[in-house]
Computed example of a mutant assay.
Amino acid sequence: MTLSGRLRWPGFYDAAIALLVGFLAHGVWLGCVLFSLQQGVPAGIVALVASLFYLGPPVTMIMAWVAFGDRLQSTDVIGLIIVAAGVIVVQRQ
């Protein structure tokens, strides 16, 4: 946001970087999941591996806390616990 309080549209470079990151973050791992299924990997194993991708944001949050001293709010910790519990449930089944 600008100082006037209005949203500023990203320039071409910023939009291109956002599209590239979005493609890499979602397109590549989803492509790998679909490729694995096509190659005959059982869906249960693919689900176990894919569930680990949900740990990315919480791990990044912890790394920012350790490396840069970012403050963690109670909602951050609750979200971290919920995500970790969800991944644990999926991994145990």
Rank of each mutant, 00 (worst) to 15 (best):
V59F: 14
S36C: 07
M61E: 10
I17N: 00
V87D: 00
I62L: 15
R71F: 08
A85I: 05
G27Y: 07
R92F: 14
F68K: 10
Q38I: 00
L55A: 07
F23P: 00
M1Y: 13
A85T: 12
I62A: 14
F23W: 08
L80W: 10
S51N: 07
W65Y: 09
I78T: 01
W9E: 12
L3Q: 03
V66C: 08
R6H: 12
V41E: 01
G5Q: 10
V90W: 01
M1F: 13
Q93C: 05
G69F: 01
T75A: 12
Y13T: 11
W9T: 12
L37I: 02
G27D: 04
F68E: 11
I88D: 02
I17Y: 00
S36L: 06
D70M: 09
T75P: 00
G31W: 08
V41W: 01
Q73R: 03
G11M: 07
V66S: 07
L72F: 04
A16M: 14
M1E: 13
L55I: 01
L48N: 15
V59A: 15
V59S: 14
R8G: 04
A43V: 06
I45S: 01
I78S: 00
A84D: 03
L19T: 06
A64Y: 14
A64V: 11
I81S: 08
P58S: 02
